[in-house]
């Protein structure tokens, strides 16, 4: 998947992946896509909840050996 910005939140626990996502999105333009990598399994539900509540779109999520990659499109 194409993306405009990338952030690695590997090793960080709740709520840091969400807070870092919010921060990373803040200087992006509407429609741009952020790629975020996390190892916190709680982030799977949290990222969806973040998307649902903020109006940003979670385009996809991939899991590979304990690492989760999210693609978030800015509202």
């Amino acid at each position: 998947m194409n993306f405009d910005k990338e952030f690695d939140a590997s090793g960080l626990s709740c709520p840091l992946p969400i807070l870092k996502t919010k921060k990373a999105l803040s200087d992006m333009a509407s429609g741009q896509v952020l790629k975020l990598v996390a190892t916190d399994c709680g982030a799977v539900k949290d990222m969806q909840a973040f998307a649902d509540q903020t109006g940003n779109s979670l385009l996809g999520m991939e899991e590979a050996s304990g690492s989760y990659t999210f693609y978030m499109k800015k509202k």
Partner: peptide, 11 residues
């Protein structure tokens, strides 16, 4: 601090 920062991130 966790709840406050998260809620703020959610708007």
């Amino acid at each position: 601090f966790i709840l406050a920062s998260t809620a703020a991130a959610l708007g």
